[in-house]
Simulated scan of single mutants.
Amino acid sequence: MKILFLSLINIKSIEEKGIYTDLIRQFVNGGHQIYVVTPFEKKLKKQTQYVIENDVHFLKVRIGNITQNNIIEKGISTLMIEGQYLKAIEKYFKDVKFDFIIYSTPPITFEKVIRYIKKRDNAKSYLLLKDIFPQNAVDLNMFHNKGLFYKYFRRKEERLYKISDFIGCMSQANVDFILKHNPNIDPLKVEICPNGIEILSIENDKSRLKEIIKKHNIPTDKTKFIYGGNIGKPQGIDFLIQCLKSNKNNDCVFFIIAGSGTEFKKLHHYFEREKPINAKLIEELPREEYELLVDCCDVGLIFLDHRFTIPNFPSRLLSYMKASMPVLAATDIHTDIGRVIEQGEFGLWCESKNVEQFNEKLKQLENPELRDKMGGNARLYLENYYTAKHSYEIITSHFK
Rank of each mutant, 00 (worst) to 15 (best):
V294N: 02
S164W: 06
K389M: 09
N217C: 10
A329R: 00
I212D: 09
R62A: 13
E369M: 09
E111S: 14
L129R: 08
D121A: 12
Y386L: 14
H306I: 02
K248P: 00
I202D: 13
N65K: 14
K363S: 15
F100P: 03
T396Q: 03
I226G: 06
K42A: 14
I63D: 11
R287H: 10
Y290S: 06
L8V: 15
I185A: 02
I102V: 08
Q364Y: 09
Y227W: 10
F313S: 06
K60C: 07
P107H: 08
Q47R: 13
L382W: 05
I213M: 09
K245R: 12
C193I: 08
D372S: 14
Q235C: 08
I71A: 07
C296M: 02
F399Q: 13
D205M: 00
Y150L: 02
I19F: 13
A258C: 10
L244G: 07
D221L: 06
E393M: 10
N65T: 15
I3F: 05
F149Y: 05
H268S: 08
K400C: 01
I237H: 02
I277S: 10
Q242I: 02
A123V: 08
K214A: 12
P276R: 11
G347N: 04
A330H: 04
L79Q: 12
F239A: 00
T262G: 14
I178P: 06
E41W: 03
L365K: 00
T48P: 11
L380Y: 09
G347F: 01
I337A: 00
L140Y: 05
V51Q: 15
C297A: 10
K12C: 06
H268Y: 12
I117G: 08
I231S: 04
K400G: 01
N278Q: 04
T220I: 12
S164T: 04
N204Q: 12
T21R: 01
N195F: 03
Y381R: 12
L6H: 07
L244C: 08
I199Y: 05
V253H: 01
L79S: 11
K389T: 15
K43R: 14
L188D: 15
L318I: 05
Q135E: 14
G64T: 04
P194R: 13
H390K: 15
K224S: 08
G18A: 04
K45N: 14
I199C: 10
F40I: 14
L370I: 11
G229L: 04
Q364R: 08
E82N: 13
N195D: 03
A323D: 13
P183Y: 08
K46E: 10
A88Q: 01
S201Y: 11
V340S: 01
L4E: 14
N10R: 10
Y386R: 14
I11K: 03
N136P: 00
K156A: 12
